[in-house]
């Protein structure tokens, strides 16, 4: 009775269902996905990519840079809402970590569906043009190695900020942090940034190494100690760092959740 492996899929399923029924998620994400899809299928630049896979990778990088920002904005309050479940959920034998993974994993999975659909659309069009199934495989690789890891990292940051700050401030901080970590190069603004390094969660190194995106997406044309030449090792390091950042932030969220819970109970007691 009641193992985490049995409970987690159910928790993910119900938290996903709750996310599906939330209007904000679709109001934020559907137009972004539609716009990125439109740009991807109509832009001459995408067609000029060295290979069909590279075109898919560039679309994935666009999704990672902009659509992921929308995911973070939309999901920044999902743990704060989950926390409102309070004693009802706390009194169940399911471990708080399993509940947290359900509360984050479910909505994140839902939020990734439009991104997956955009990649599949672009991959399918390229596959038809090239008469080759490779771009569809490239779409799957792009989703798993570029968009999903970045979305995990930013969602984890968003839920931590959502537990810490009022949701409006959390959303502003999410946008600023993501822009700093994925778009802001020293060439744009001379401030220290992880953009273009193996610590950037954009997914540039996997895009360049495994899908043939233009090499500038890896180091963004800059040099420095963390701006490695794009190869398998650098791509794995970049992917690993992104996942590690996401997991570390989820661990922080778990800690904040239990501290917030005990603080609320203390406040209740003083009422």
């Amino acid at each position: 009775m009641g193992s985490a492996t049995a409970t987690l899929p159910g928790a993910v399923r119900y938290e996903a269902l709750i996310a599906v029924r939330q209007r904000l998620l679709w109001v934020v994400l559907a137009p972004m996905a539609a716009l990125i899809a439109l740009v991807a299928v109509s832009s001459p630049a995408a067609g000029d990519a060295d290979s069909a896979s590279a075109g898919v990778a560039v679309t994935a990088l666009g999704l990672s840079a902009f659509y992921t920002m929308g995911v973070g904005v939309a999901l920044s309050d999902c743990l704060a809402r989950h926390r409102a479940g309070g004693d009802l959920l706390e009194a169940t034998p399911t471990a708080p970590t399993v509940r947290l993974l359900g509360a984050v994993g479910g909505p994140l999975a839902v939020a990734l569906v439009p991104a997956g659909a955009v990649l599949l659309l672009v991959g399918t069009i390229r596959a038809l043009v090239d008469a080759s199934p490779d771009p569809i495989g490239a779409a799957a690789v792009a989703l798993l190695t570029i968009v999903a890891p970045g979305a995990l990292a930013l969602t984890a940051l968003a839920v931590v900020l959502g537990l810490w700050l009022p949701v409006v401030f959390a959303r502003i901080a999410v946008v600023l942090t993501w822009g700093w970590a994925t778009l802001l190069t020293p060439g744009l603004l001379p401030v220290p940034t992880v953009t273009g390094t193996i610590l950037s969660p954009l997914g540039g190194y996997p895009a360049v190494t495994w899908l043939g995106a233009p090499s500038t997406w890896a180091d963004r044309g800059e040099t420095g100690p963390l701006r490695l030449a794009a190869d398998d090792g650098a791509a794995l390091l970049n992917l690993g760092a992104t996942l590690l950042i996401g997991l570390a932030l989820l661990a922080l969220a778990r800690l904040l959740l239990s501290e917030a819970g005990s603080r609320i109970r203390k406040e209740d007691q003083t009422r």
């Binding site: 009775m1 193992s3 409970t7 928790a11 269902l17 709750i18 029924r21 169940t92 034998p93």
Partner: peptide, 20 residues
């Protein structure tokens, strides 16, 4: 959870209670 039906809420709690 306001976005779940009564039946779904009970099913979710049942899962969390470990009724696999």
């Amino acid at each position: 959870y306001p976005d779940l039906t009564g039946w779904e809420m009970l099913d979710y709690i049942g899962l969390l209670k470990g009724i696999d």
